[in-house]
Each structure stands twice: as structure tokens, then as C-alpha cells.
Design a protein around this nucleic acid. Sequence first.
DNA 1: CTCATGTGCAACCTCCGGGTTGCATATTGG
DNA 2: CCAATATGCAACCCGGAGGTTGCACATGAG
Lengths: 119, 119
Amino acid sequence: MSEASALGTSRVRDAAPLFAALGDRTRFRLLMRLSSSGPRSITSLCARSQVSRQAITKHLAVLAEAGLVRSGRRGRERMWELEPKRLAEAHAYLDRISAQWDDALGRLSAYIDNPPPRR
Amino acid sequence: MSEASALGTSRVRDAAPLFAALGDRTRFRLLMRLSSSGPRSITSLCARSQVSRQAITKHLAVLAEAGLVRSGRRGRERMWELEPKRLAEAHAYLDRISAQWDDALGRLSAYIDNPPPRR
DNA sequence: CTCATGTGCAACCTCCGGGTTGCATATTGG
DNA sequence: CCAATATGCAACCCGGAGGTTGCACATGAG
């Protein structure tokens, strides 16, 4: 059974915060940098960033809260890395919506462009 | 060529607003209701909702702005329906990140749990 | 040991997102 | 035609998100 089908309706509560974490420009760029360059420290991530280090720190905290990244200490540095599982869950949420919609369309078939007569 | 690979790096700008639209509890529930029941009118969507009709209207506007839904007039009603293409794009963004991460890990292999000696 | 580097913490500011209320406007059933 | 239904629009409120600055604290290089 895929992870997608393992997402119960009750877990929909978790979806919004997850996507909200993805829904910020700065955070999304952080994820992109992290995913393309592998684990990095905060200062390393700040390198060419427009915002301050504290801002980056806060965003990383948000991403961590959403389960999208995790961190570990290495000496005086803190290394951050992606958490692919959570991404997969986001994936599953989208799949669920798509599937439901396809199902609904199967029952109703094009509506706006081809309105059925009102009863 | 899949839609995923058609997403250029420049389009990353569009990703954040898209996920931001998904990242609100009320909006996400709206999408769920829409996707599972097919096209509906605003008042229909307000039925068992906790928030006011205007709130719903605003949320639908946000979703429309993000390209996730579209609407059409039918008499005095306005019917709203899902826009699966945009969902697929969100999908693609997530895929891109996952793929990049896998690639990066392929180069570096587990870091935090198995730190390489510092140079 | 000592200093430079890498983070953590906290206070503070501003702006906008999510909600509400009130009123105006269009359509349609009869 | 007329009232009830379905939306649209605008003003207003409030709390929290995103950002900054300033300072404290830990740790590794030399």
C-alpha cells in the first residue's frame, strides 16, 4: 500500500501547516539550496541571501517544525538537511485531491463549459 | 517530456505563492470539498463552514489567483471547480526538490548520522 | 589561552492575511 | 412585478508572520 493511501482524512489537519511552510519565498529558496547542495550550516546558507542570519534561523525553525528539515550539531556548527519523507507526504496530499477530483468528474463530467439543464 | 522537467529554475518564483495558497486550513478544506463533490457554488460551499460567506469568497479568490480553481457564472450563481493542471505543477515542484536531494545524497551520502572527518 | 567564528535568545517593528459586518446589486421563481 | 436568493464590494479589526538589531554564549583554530 502506498503512503498516499495511508493518509487518513483526519490527517488533513496536518496538510495546511506543511504547505504553509513551503509557501514562503525565502523558505522555498532555502529548501532549493538545501536540496541541491546537500547538508549545510546556517552561515553557509546565509552566504548570498538577502536577509539576515536570524531570519534564516527562524525560517529553518519553521521548516523543522513542519518536519521538512532536521538538524544536527557538528562542533560549533549546526548542519541542516532535508527530510524527504515529509516531502513525500505533501506529495500524497496533492495526489489525494487530484484523485478525488478525477473521481468527481467521472461522475459529473464537464460542468462549467457544458452546463446540464436545471431541474 | 514530462511537465515536471518543463519547470525552469526561473519559475521557482511561482512556487511559493502556489504553496501559500494551499497552506491555509480553511482553503485546504475548501479544496478538499471541491475535489470530492465536484463543482459547487459559494453558498453551497459555505453550508457547514464555520466562517462567513465573505471569508469563503476571499479564499476562493486567493485560490483562483494561485490558479488552483476557476469559476464561471451560471445564472445568479457562480460555480467553482478545481484546476488539476496547477496541482500537477505543485507536484512537479516537490518532485524537483526530491530529485535534487537524492542527487546530492548520491554525491555525499549520509552526513549527520555519519559525519566525515573534517579536513 | 585567546580571539575569531558560529549560534542562540529576546525585544521590537511593520505589514498583511484572515475574519467580520453592513450595504449594494443582480437574477429568478411565481 | 416582487420578494427571496446568490453574490459583489468596501471599510474596519486584530494577531501573528517575517524581518531587524543587539548582545550573550559556546567552541575550535593557532
